[in-house]
Design a protein around this nucleic acid. Structure first.
Lengths: 353, 353
DNA sequence: GTGCTGAAGTAAATCGATTGAGTATACCTC
DNA sequence: GAGGTATACTCAATCGATTTACTTCAGCAC
């Protein structure tokens, strides 16, 4: 035994204290650092090391609380076990749900992630993929963000529809979404329906709008241009929905239902409707989109098209890790489609007029 | 000139393509890598390198789109420009707001952060600080999480009150918070007030509860034990508030106001109250706590004690970075107090009985 | 022509792992 | 006893930077 009892106090460290390096551990054991590395990682090369030595190494690693320095390991192996997540902003129900799905899957697989939010600033949308790449992330998930794909990293985009080489899009079946909402309103007898269109910066806006119109035509739902209004402000508070609804109301074209771009704007719309003397749902039924947490907490509860946001996060993480670990990086799905559900709550009811 | 035109095509890369290393850049320029490093980092050692050479180096770095590998740099310098953020879960209004504050400040300073959520699992609360340390984070921000401090990293805790060596606590002035809410209800004439207490896992629960009782005594507000109920479920949906409110109602002790532990439970409480025939605010006034985004979207808007959550995130990030860059790591503030505000919305009104 | 100073760099160690190639010894086989 | 093979490791290069301690040369003074 090479170490006397004199040395013990130095060797035994309280857990969490500054860490031992592989080299120190090897010195302590009187073997080479290569041996320790092989054993710790259970590499194929460790086959030839007898069980008794292996146990000695592992025992010492436990006692000295050895934790490999992941920076050093990553540098060598070119694997950081880290991915980057790009979101418009964090404080929103939408991104938070997706992130929680991403996290769920990643942490299970031993991956961590760096988050950056660009707040719709074009320069940041450009820069962040490169900065993340420099931080050695192995892939990127872009949430509701139109990435130009100027990084060579494997990328999964949630709710983007642009076909960018190297990017897998995870999208909602918007035709189904439009159909669920419009059929619901149709069944309730609504004929005059107002629509709030999303901001241009949202990567879903155009697609959702197209689907809405084509499905409306199919179903024979009439769409009055005077009952449509697009949100412009880049804020993401219900205030924006409030404003466009007032704009629509000011045109004095009667309507009995309103289909908003998302739940946040639907909540603002309800405020505006009430303020101008319309009851919800008795006078005007309101349908939202997304099914963020607070949709259920509204009074009345918000009828909405549910996007499986958490699930989309999980799928994104799964897809990305599969691609990262695949030997053929250039082989990937261009698109994965998920299905919406209609969640009927109290904000819609039969048309009375 | 050491490189013939033949080599050019290899040297010039399109932006975003896999990166050049310092060594390649040095070879391309015909200087040593030390020189390039000194120039790129504007180190003091670069003094002796003439301006013309420096410009040549920087020019080439730009042309070849050189980006230093941060893994390698971190390994050497023992600075990762990364911190860890530990939250209970992401999908909540609370954590999302704090994170957005943290991010704001960090990204300005060139720092990134890794997020982990423990979902109140004790083993994860123990492990995560160590795992983050292994990932070379320079410090940790713990949000609403009682850290045992078993890592040696500089730590800032938001809303924790435990005095742990090495940890700076960022806390709300709970006496002021209680006073704002109780005075408001008192001024409106409420005498019979119900209280919802937070779950044990929330690090604020006991402190807030103590403050509430001591301030109630000061103000002469009576507190009926039958009008108190603690939340138990570890879910963080309004459902939990709904259940405890039904529990309180079932005791048939009349009350005209309710002060909830947080906005989420207040929202659930309002459901329960309405369901059992009480109007809000006409029959029962409700006060929440936190002022999460959806508090303002309620109908009626929720009167609540506003916690400056974003600001607390910013302060946490600031405090942590200051401590990281300070030469004396053992010198730190034990506590920083922030002030709540009362936000009066529609859920409270004068007592009618 | 010796010594000194400043300019303009460079060589090599280092951070903490991983890993392919190699070595030394023992044992077995023909 | 030559050759082969399995065991039990070790050596040293490598990842891509940073950084300390040199070196080399020119110019100048004395």
């Amino acid at each position: 035994m090479p170490n006397s009892s004199k040395k013990r106090p130095k060797a035994v460290r309280e857990p969490g204290s500054s860490s031992v390096s592989l080299k120190e551990l090897a010195a302590h054991l009187g073997v080479s650092s290569a041996t320790v590395s092989l054993v710790i990682n259970r590499s194929p090369g460790a086959k030839s090391i007898p069980a008794v030595t292996q146990e000695r190494v592992r025992q010492a690693a436990r006692e000295l609380n050895y934790r490999p320095n992941l920076m050093a390991r990553s540098l060598r192996q070119k694997r950081s076990l880290t991915i980057g997540v790009i979101v418009p902003e964090i404080s929103e129900g939408y991104a938070a749900l997706v992130m929680s799905g991403i996290e769920d899957y990643l942490l299970e697989e031993g991956y961590f992630y760096l988050v950056v939010s660009h707040r719709h600033r074009a320069d940041l949308i450009e820069e962040y993929p490169l900065i993340l790449q420099q931080r050695a992330v192995e892939g990127v998930i872009a949430v509701d963000t139109a990435c130009s794909g100027n990084s060579t990293l494997p990328t999964v985009a949630i709710s983007s529809h642009r076909e960018v080489p190297g990017v897998t899009n995870i999208v909602l079946d918007h035709d189904l979404a439009a159909s669920l909402a419009l059929r619901h309103l149709q069944e309730l007898g609504h004929k005059k329906i107002a629509f709030i269109k999303g901001q241009d910066f949202s990567s879903d806006t155009e697609f959702r709008w197209q689907s809405l119109h084509s499905v409306a035509k199919q179903l024979g739902v009439s769409v009055d241009p005077r009952l449509q209004q697009q949100m412009k402000s880049d804020s993401s508070s219900p205030q924006v929905g409030y404003e466009v609804t007032r704009e629509i109301l000011s045109r004095n074209v009667p309507f009995t239902a309103l289909f908003a771009f998302n739940d946040i704007s639907a909540i603002g719309a309800i405020h505006a409707l009430r303020e101008s003397g319309h009851r919800v749902p008795e006078d005007v039924s309101v349908v939202g989109f997304d099914d963020i947490q607070s949709a259920a907490y509204q009074n009345p509860g918000l009828t909405t098209v549910h996007q499986p946001l958490r699930e989309m996060g999980v799928i994104a993480a799964q897809t990305l890790l599969k691609r990262i670990s695949s030997p053929n990086k250039n082989e990937y799905l261009k698109q994965i489609e998920v299905k919406p559900k209609l969640i009927v709550r109290g904000s819609t009811t039969a048309c009375s007029s």
